[in-house]
Computed example of a mutant assay.
Amino acid sequence: MVATSFTPMASLMGGALIGLSAVLLMWAKGRVAGVSGIAARLFPPYEDGEFAGRLAFVAGLV
């Protein structure tokens, strides 16, 4: 049997960061942080002035 560590503080902080980033995106751009839509628009024919922001968002997920 493999035991895993219980890390409530790390989990709480990770969830808070995800929530904060979603709220900031909604505040700054007026959009919901839909990862599939943001990632799909990294590829043509959806090129526009938002490419750098989309790339930064997806890179931040990694």
Rank of each mutant, 00 (worst) to 15 (best):
E47C: 13
D48A: 02
T4P: 01
M9Y: 04
P44F: 05
L55F: 11
A56S: 05
S5P: 02
A3P: 07
V2W: 10
L17T: 14
E47K: 11
L55K: 09
R41P: 00
I38L: 09
G19A: 14
K29D: 07
T4N: 04
V32Q: 14
V58L: 00
A16Y: 15
A10M: 05
A59T: 09
L17I: 10
V58C: 07
A3Y: 01
S11R: 09
M13N: 10
T7F: 02
A3D: 06
I18G: 14
A16Q: 07
A3M: 05
L42Q: 04
L12D: 10
A40G: 11
A16K: 04
G53F: 03
S11Q: 12
G37W: 08
P44V: 07
L61S: 06
R31F: 15
R41Q: 14
A52K: 13
S21E: 09
A52H: 07
G15C: 04
A33Y: 02
G14D: 13
A28F: 11
A3N: 09
F43W: 07
V62P: 05
M9C: 05
A10W: 08
E50D: 06
G14V: 01
A33P: 13
F51W: 11
S21I: 06
L24M: 08
T7W: 01
G60W: 02
M1F: 06
D48P: 04
S36E: 10
G30M: 12
M13S: 12
A33F: 03
G49H: 04
G49S: 01
E50G: 07
A28H: 04
T4G: 08
A22Y: 06
P44A: 10
R41F: 02
G60V: 06
R41Y: 00
A40S: 11
F43Y: 09
F43M: 12
L20C: 11
G34P: 07
V2N: 09
L12E: 06
G15V: 01
T4V: 07
A56N: 03
A39V: 07
V58P: 00
G37Y: 05
S21D: 06
G34I: 11
S36G: 11
V2G: 07
I18Q: 13
A10G: 00
V2M: 14
L42A: 03
A59Y: 06
F51P: 00
P45A: 03
S36Y: 02
T4E: 04
G53E: 01
W27L: 15
G19R: 11
V23R: 09
A52M: 03
V32S: 14
R31T: 15
A10S: 12
R31N: 10
S5Q: 01
V2A: 11
A22E: 14
R41C: 05
P45N: 09
G49E: 06
L61Y: 06
F51T: 01
I18N: 03
V35S: 12
A59N: 01
I38H: 03
L42E: 01
V32D: 13
R31E: 15
A22R: 13
A16H: 15
E47Q: 11
L61C: 06
I18A: 12
L42T: 04
L55R: 13
G60E: 05
G60K: 02
V62E: 02
S36N: 13
W27Y: 13
V32E: 10
